[in-house]
Write a protein that binds this DNA or RNA. Structure first.
Length: 909
RNA sequence: GCCUUGGUGGUGGAAUGGUAGACACGAGGGACUUAAAAUCCCUUGGGCAGAAAUGCCUGUAUGGGUUCGAGUCCCAUCCGAGGCACCA
């Protein structure tokens, strides 16, 4: 039999599906392991070879864990709500559901062809009502909860109501509460609900006709579509994730994630511990207390002015009659600017004097109050004290408007720039004089608190997540408006199914498509017309896989207590500040209310790198239809043209295929070098427009899925981004053929029952150890190298005793060929159910051994000699050393490394 | 500007502080073939010496340092990638 990968792969993929080889159940007799891929958004373009990289890695890990005796949950599904399907629907009139289902089917075909061990009986789709029922359910729970800072956890809103009725809460007294109307009570509770509706400054994207979350905007443009985004005040549904900021931040320490990813989340959450300080202000004779936030109270003696955000409510009160006109003009100008314009003008400094004066609570000095867009209304209190000597932004402002700059650290030079470092000795600072800056920071905080000037305060950069989208293709909110009061649709009436519609366009009036749906009402009351954002459906999908068909709960207690949380999550870094934050928040919320048993959803996270494309170029001589090979192109004036990488092999152009590629190249002429046309190349993003997209289906067709899997892993470390280059694939393909030939010599079965030699066992067990170590740290490329080395060492070994374990070792990587050989070896079941071969150290002991010889604590020499060497020979060797080494004095520990016959190194410690 | 990474042959990449370049691709040479494919063998960082076996020098972005010994650890510089960017 020859290695007919097409036949073999088809056969086993069918058999796996028939026999449900990868179906998994909660099995109390086995330890569990949950391996998860970030589920894909099924786009119309299908998969290219870059997409499955992470899936292959997790598949190998899942299969490995299964061999190791774990019950492995490894599911897959689709993140199916989203903008592209809807945009496409607007253009073509096709219902997004139709295109989504088509795309999903295409994805499924492509995935199946690669031979993944997903338990497809657990598939989820976020756009399926049986799934989004639970997204809506979670929203209702959030609507019905508040964040209790005393418990540092979410609690049912009924507890807050009780508090309000009996003792009041914060600025709401019992009397106020009891006197409030239904509508007023609803408004009061909105201030604390986890899912709440509130007026806020949002990222409005006119091009998409919807608002966007912060992570959906980059450089002032929408991530999807690249339309400009501006700031707008709007009433929107939001999730109070800012209430949780501290917990996800502290929780990071317990997670096995990469440092860079944790750092990204830390920056995104952005904790800063500082002080709120009250400044008295005077404006046209009126006094007003203004609270500012600073992390550097120690610099308070250097305050020379104050700044308010233009959007701050204080602006009106602190504007003098004289400055009124100037201030109004300025605020109007700022408001007109889009986010993008603000960013592009980072270097320009703008502002206006308000006419008010602040009084430094420590010095009693009067400082002017300014208004500038460099202070943000959404952070801190929207007001700051400015210390130009020690803050670069204040410095730029002071220079521009000629405000005084007072240094308060000895010897620092502020003639060119501010001195932001937290080092040096304080001066010009009253009681702080002479202190080290680091000590002064704490001392100043204590002083402010003791003297009632201010209090310690922790602020977070993290904002609440805007949760409504003015779109059609998303989860409807289970909320209706009863006399204008947002009211939840009862749980038993979920799911609230998206209504059928003919047009998905937003009418342009800021009204979402659902506003134009017929009968979009509940019990005669109007329903909420916006829908939930993309991250809603992806925030808890990993929980649903545990128990995907449960009609009574998102996940049953039993299933949740067995699978608990994701042990290994594989996906791209692009979700660092979106999905991975929302999911952690969502999970913590469900944890607080006792619906799940783990506080963190993803224990270990591996970020796979991007697979870049490798583009090829041909060089057309200007004004002709003649193409010149790379090596000769400098002799002509040429234009570089992208050429389809699929008609280029090892950078050599297939001339006939090129002529057939496009009509305009039908009569192309070539100037060759050594009879060949060599193409140029570059590493670029894999995309259709660069003609560098490689389809996994094509690779499976020519080389087989096993080769594809092996090659993707052989390219390099998972975490690294690397270019795809098909030309290297022959190496791993050859390896598989060679492996096959150990079983079938010239097509004849040739496995024997001879006992293995010592050398063969050594090769095998070295490989077992290597694979165990490497898979645990995702170093698959080195494991594959180890396989190649082992095969080289084994030579023409046809012994069952060696080959059988080899099949098991290799099967996580290349399951099809291994199943086939496993069956040929006479086994009934799937190789997936084999046991991972036991590693026996005794087989691998080196012939050379290291003898540490300690003379006396000071220096150590180790002698590495043939294992056969007698103690006397070792001693002779060591005794010979101190005379030759530099360190002959005193007593020593010596390490000598001897490669058979030759001393190569002496170590003295 | 800040944070996080990384810089090793023609290419992808290996190296618990201990023979740098494993493994693979590509390239060159050879064997088997009428021929091709397939397969197998040899060479392959650079330089020098030698008829040859082989030997020597040099080499991991740059410059310093620690160490008997540095691709690996420390300091500075340069370059690339990713993230954040008026967050007080």
């Amino acid at each position: 039999m020859e290695y007919d990968f097409l036949e073999i792969e088809k056969k086993w993929q069918c058999r796996w599906a028939q026999q449900q080889t990868y179906k998994v159940k909660e099995d109390a007799s086995k330890p569990k392991f949950y391996v998860l891929d970030m589920f894909p958004y099924p786009s119309g373009a299908g998969l290219h070879v870059g997409h499955p990289l992470g899936y292959i890695a997790s598949d190998i890990y899942s299969r490995y864990k299964r061999l190791k005796g774990f019950s492995v949950l490894h599911p897959m599904g689709y993140d199916a709500f989203g903008l592209p399907a809807e945009q496409y629907a607007i253009q073509t009139g096709q219902h997004p559901e139709v295109t989504t289902v088509n795309n999903i089917n295409r994805y499924r075909q492509q995935l199946d062809r690669i031979g993944f061990c997903y338990d497809w009986s657990r598939e989820v789709r976020t756009c399926d009502p049986t799934f989004y029922k639970w997204t809506q359910w979670a929203f209702l729970k959030m609507f019905d909860s508040w964040y209790d800072p005393a418990a540092n956890a979410a609690r049912p809103i009924s507890e807050l109501v009780k508090k309000l009725e009996s003792e009041g809460y914060e600025d709401v007294s019992v009397q106020q509460w009891n006197a409030a109307s239904e509508k007023e009570k609803s408004d009061i509770l909105m201030r604390w609900r986890i899912a709440y509706q509130g007026e806020t400054s949002v990222n409005w994207c006119e091009g998409l006709g919807t608002v966007l979350a912060n992570d959906e905007v980059k450089d002032g443009l929408s991530v999807r579509g690249g339309f400009p985004v501006e700031q707008k005040k709007m009433k929107q549904w939001q999730l109070r994730i800012s209430a949780y900021a501290g917990r996800p931040l502290d929780g990071l320490d317990t997670l096995d994630w990469s440092d860079s990813l944790k750092e990204m989340q830390r920056n995104w959450i952005g904790r800063s511990q500082g002080t709120e300080v009250e400044f008295d202000t005077v404006c046209d004779g009126r006094h007003k207390k203004v609270t500012i936030f600073t992390t550097r109270v120690d610099t308070i003696f250097g305050v020379t002015f104050m700044v308010l955000a233009p959007e701050s409510e204080l602006v009106d009160e602190l504007t003098s009659a004289e400055q009124k006109q100037a201030v109004e003009d300025y605020v109007r100008e700022v408001r007109k600017k889009t986010e993008r314009e603000r960013i592009s003008e980072t270097k320009s400094v703008t502002g206006v004097f308000s006419g008010a004066w602040g009084i430094n609570p420590l010095t009693g000095e009067k400082v002017p109050v300014w208004i500038s867009e460099y202070v943000l209304s959404g952070y801190g209190t929207g007001a700051i004290m400015a210390v130009p000597a020690h803050d670069s932004r204040d410095y730029a402002f002071a220079k521009k408007f000629n405000l005084p700059i007072i240094p308060i650290i000895e010897g620092c030079d502020v003639s060119e720039s501010s001195f932001d470092a937290k080092e040096g000795r304080m001066c010009n600072s009253g009681f702080l004089n002479g202190m080290d800056v680091r000590d002064a920071i704490e001392a100043a905080k204590d002083y402010a608190e003791e003297h009632g000037i201010g209090r310690r305060k922790t602020n977070y950069r993290l904002r609440d997540a805007i949760f409504s989208r003015q779109r059609y293709w998303g989860e409807p909110f289970p909320i209706y408006y009863k006399d204008g009061i947002p009211t939840p649709v009862p749980e038993e009436d979920l799911p609230l199914v998206l209504p059928e519609m003919k047009s998905f366009k937003s009418a342009g009036d800021g009204q979402p498509p659902l506003a134009h749906a017929e009968n979009w009402t509940y019990k005669g009351y109007p329903l909420e017309t916006s829908t939930m954002p993309g991250f809603a459906g992806s925030s808890a999908y990993y929980l649903r896989y545990m128990d995907p068909t449960d009609a009574d709960a998102l996940v049953s207690r039993e299933a949740n207590e067995y699978w608990r949380s994701v042990d290994l999550y594989v996906g791209g870094t692009e979700h660092a500040t979106g999905h991975l934050i929302y999911s952690r928040f969502w999970n913590k919320f469900l944890y607080d209310l006792g619906y799940v048993c783990e506080d963190e959803p993803f224990r270990k996270l591996v970020n796979q790198g991007m697979i870049q494309g490798r583009s090829n170029f041909v060089y057309r001589v200007v004004g002709t239809n003649t193409f010149v090979s790379l090596g000769l192109k400098d002799q002509y004036e040429t234009t570089e043209i992208h050429v389809d990488v699929n008609i280029v092999h090892a950078d050599k152009l297939d001339l006939e295929a090129f002529r057939a590629w496009r009509p305009e190249f039908k009569d192309a002429e070539f100037i060759l070098e050594n009879g060949e046309y060599i193409c140029g190349w570059a590493i670029e993003k894999m995309s259709k427009s660069m003609f560098n997209v490689v389809n996994p289906d094509d690779i499976c067709e020519t080389y087989g899925a096993d080769t594809l899997r092996l090659y993707e892993m052989f390219l390099g470390p998972i975490e690294q981004s690397k270019p795809w280059d098909t030309k290297g694939i022959d190496g791993v393909h050859r390896f598989l053929r060679k492996f096959w030939r150990l079983f079938y010599e010239r097509g004849q079965w040739c496995v024997t029952d001879e006992p293995a030699t010592k050398a063969e066992l050594k090769s095998l067990h070295t490989l077992i150890r290597k694979e165990q170590q490497d898979i645990e740290c995702f170093s698959y490329n080195t494991t594959i190298s180890a396989f190649m080395i082992a095969l080289g060492e084994l030579g023409e070994c046809h012994k069952r005793a060696i080959l059988e374990p080899l099949v098991v070792l290799l099967c996580p990587f290349t399951p099809h060929i291994c199943e086939e050989l496993w069956e040929a070896l006479g086994h009934e079941g799937s190789v997936c159910d084999a046991a991972f071969p036991e590693f026996v150290e005794a087989y691998t002991v080196e012939d050379n051994v290291t003898y540490p010889v300690q003379f006396n604590g000071k220096m150590r020499f180790t002698v590495d000699l043939p294992k056969a060497a007698s103690p006397a020979e070792v001693e002779t060797a060591v005794r010979a050393l101190p005379q030759t080494a530099k360190y002959t004095e005193g007593l020593a520990i010596v390490k000598v490394i001897v490669v058979p016959g030759r001393i190569i190194n002496i170590v003295v410690r």
